[in-house]
Every structure is written in C-alpha cells, then in structure tokens.
Simulated scan of single mutants.
Amino acid sequence: MSPSIIIALLMGKSPQLQAVSELLARSGIHCSIFEAGRDLIHSVAEVRYDMLLIDDELPDIPAIDVVRAVRGAPARDVPIILLATDSSEDSLVDALDAGADDYVCRPLSSRVLMARIAALRRRVTGERLRQGLVVRAGPYQLNSVGRFATLRDERIALTPKEFDLAMLLFSNVGRVLPSSRIEQTVWRHELAPLSRALAGLVSRLRKTLRIGAENGVTITVVYAHGYRLDVLEEDAAPRLPAAGRRTVVRRFTES
C-alpha cells in the first residue's frame, strides 16, 4: 500500500488496539489515533482520511453514533471498518445499516485485518472511478457524486443504503435482481434467510422516492427470486384511460 495513505484509528482506551497502530505503521500507513468519538467526528470535517477504523467500545458516545455522524458529514463517503467485540448477527446488521462498510471481530488477526483494509480500498477506488455517473429512468435521476436523487428536478436525499439499492435497481431496469445480489451490494453479505431487512429497505425506498405508477416507475417483488424495477411508458400511467394498454419498459441511460 502507498505510504501516502492516512487512516484514522478511533481506539477509545483499548490497549489491545495499540498493536493495530503499530501494524499500520510497519505497513507504511500513517495512522492518526483518537480516543474520543467526538474528536474523530470533528477531525473528519477538516481532514480527508482514506479510511476510518472504529472500535466499538468508546468512552464518550456509542460507535454506531460515530458512524452515523460521519455518514452525515461532507466527507461521508470515507470507508469505515468497525472493530467489534460482539460477533452477534444483530450487532453486525446494526453496524452495516448505520453505514459501516465492514465489520471485523476481535481478537484481530493481523493478516485478516490488512486483507480487509486492502480489499475495501480496492472496492472504494473502483467506485470512485465511476463517480460522476448519472443514471436516469423515467422522471428520476440518480447522481453518484452527491449520492442523491431527483424527481422532476426535485432533489431527494437518500440514506447510504437507500442510494445503493436505488442505484442497483435503476441501473438494471426490467431485470430481475436476485435478493442475494442486492444484499451483497447493499450490506456486503447475504442476510439471514428470515431477515426482513431487504423488504423493509425496499419499502422505505418506495416511500422516499414516491415510486409508483403515478410517477412512471414501479418496483415489483418477484416471488422466490428478488425484485425488478420497471419504467412505464407515458401512456401506461393510471391517470390515463387504462383499457388495452401494455406496460413498456425503457432502458436507463447514462451520462
């Protein structure tokens, strides 16, 4: 890895994580160390870090709140790995829902941690190369730089996971996307078989973007498979006479 990489390590008062800063230094990575969550939040507003490593046991505020605060800051696209003591599925899902990109349980393996850091940087670099992509479908437009949507020029704010889901669906108009692929894209792993997290996220996205036939775009549940987003032709909207019409799918465009 390049020695120009700067990683912020929010380690609270955990002496075990001192080894992490030493590991990063040996790898040629500059490491800024923080004990309090609020200090890191303030620093993120002023310094552009390449990645944040956040311990889940902090002296001032919950680590989840730090993640949420960072995701609401101007530098909200910084990659985040949560270093956790709790290996339960609920804690993992909560962390990823809050905006963490990865979740590594302690005790930490040096090789595993460095591999996770390298893999996350590769993925983020690829995503940043695609920044500037604008996806259009019907009256909607998704902007990858600001990670927001517009509906007939009305700007709509989206949570990180809402935007990831929207970008995946709007980039695959008319295609059935398996639930497993959506989960890997949005949560970076497949959810438990009985989890309702994906269904809940789809429901929230419909509400946030006001998706429905009245706006020319629908999301359909394909039983036992996944979800499909369709763009309706203008004459398929329900406000017009419905007799004898068919739903026609238009492909999205990029610019």
Results as ranks from 00 to 15, higher is better:
Met1Phe: 09
Ala8Gly: 04
Ala8Thr: 10
Ala8His: 05
Gly12Leu: 02
Ser14Ile: 00
Leu17Met: 10
Gln18Asp: 14
Val20Glu: 02
Leu23His: 06
Ala25His: 14
Gly28Asn: 05
Cys31Leu: 08
Ser32Thr: 07
Gly37Tyr: 03
Asp39Pro: 02
Leu40Asn: 00
Ile41Lys: 01
Ser43Ala: 12
Ala45Thr: 11
Arg48Trp: 05
Leu53Ser: 03
Ile61Gln: 13
Pro62Ile: 01
Arg68Asp: 03
Ala69Asn: 07
Ala69Leu: 01
Arg71Trp: 09
Arg76Thr: 01
Ile81Met: 11
Ile81Arg: 06
Thr85His: 09
Glu89Cys: 05
Asp90Gln: 15
Ser91Ala: 15
Leu96Glu: 01
Ala98Pro: 04
Gly99Cys: 01
Asp101Ile: 01
Arg106His: 05
Pro107Val: 07
Leu108Glu: 01
Ser109Gln: 07
Arg111Trp: 07
Ala115Thr: 14
Ala118Ser: 14
Ala119Phe: 10
Leu120Thr: 13
Arg123Leu: 13
Thr125Arg: 13
Arg128Ile: 03
Gln131Met: 07
Leu133Gly: 07
Val134Asn: 06
Val135Pro: 04
Pro139Val: 13
Leu142Ile: 00
Phe148Val: 03
Ala149Val: 00
Asp153Ser: 13
Ala157Asp: 09
Thr159Gln: 03
Glu162Val: 03
Asp164Ile: 00
Met167Phe: 05
Leu169Gly: 08
Leu169Gln: 05
Phe170Asn: 01
Leu177Arg: 02
Ser180Cys: 05
Ile182Pro: 07
Glu183Ser: 07
Gln184His: 14
Val186Glu: 10
Ala197Trp: 06
Ala199Arg: 14
Leu201Trp: 08
Lys207Ser: 11
Thr208Arg: 11
Ile211His: 05
Glu214Ala: 13
Asn215Lys: 13
Val222Tyr: 04
Ala224Leu: 02
Gly226Lys: 12
Glu233Ile: 03
Glu234Thr: 12
Arg239Asp: 14
Ala242Asp: 13
Ala243Asn: 14
Arg245Val: 14
Val249Asp: 15
Phe252Thr: 10
Phe252Gly: 11
Thr253Met: 09
